[in-house]
């Protein structure tokens, strides 16, 4: 007759399984995607004319193939874009070479002055993506700051603490108008 094998003690399997469970829970890092959100303009056939905009209403930012930045025809550093944009859009002194403003009726705000300013961003095919994102980042920072300012004026809260309706109202007061011109090949095809 075969000898009866003694039963293996199974109490520790639970611990082993728990260990595995904790390991998997801890290691599955849900890497969240982050980035700068933009909405592209709808596609337009090539022969269509761009709408005319007064020169004072445009802040032109050019980035060339050597990653050099030019704001309104004078060389500038990437880090100055934020200040320039804020000054441009808000036009605190109502200067005649900065954008005009238009009275608009916006719910929750009533009659407010909305800047007609438009930022035109033009990059070359040879511009590096790093600099392009840095420029976009600066622009986003500028608009976020202005929206925060407006939100604080009105409700004493930061923009992202507002309700969606309030956020939409603030977005209407400070619209983010960034137009990206089709890039042309200046620095050769890359």
């Amino acid at each position: 007759m075969a000898k009866k094998t003694p039963e293996i003690n199974a109490t520790s399997t639970a611990d082993i399984a728990f260990l595995l469970l904790v390991f998997f829970l801890a290691t599955t890092t849900m890497n969240v995607d982050s980035g700068l959100y933009r909405r592209l303009p709808p596609y337009q056939p090539e022969n269509q004319k761009a709408p005319e905009v007064a020169k004072r209403n445009i802040l032109q930012i050019l980035v060339n193939q050597n990653d050099m930045v030019m704001i309104n025809d004078s060389p500038a550093d990437v880090s100055t874009i934020k200040e320039r944009t804020i000054e441009f859009i808000l036009n605190p002194g109502n200067r005649s070479d900065l954008p005009s403003k238009e009275l608009k009726n916006i719910d929750m705000f009533g009659q407010v002055e909305v800047s007609k300013g438009l930022i035109s961003l033009k990059s070359d095919r040879g511009t590096s993506y790093r600099v392009y994102v840095a420029v976009q980042d600066q622009l986003t920072a500028a608009f976020n700051e202005m929206r925060n300012m407006k939100a604080n004026e009105k409700w004493g809260k930061n923009f992202n603490e507002l309700t969606p309706e309030q956020q939409d109202a603030v977005k209407d007061v400070i619209p983010m108008l960034v137009s990206e011109a089709e890039p042309n090949v200046i620095g050769g095809k890359k």
Partner: peptide, 8 residues
């Protein structure tokens, strides 16, 4: 048209 420029 919705685009996200992925960045860290």
């Amino acid at each position: 048209l919705k685009v996200n420029y992925g960045s860290r």
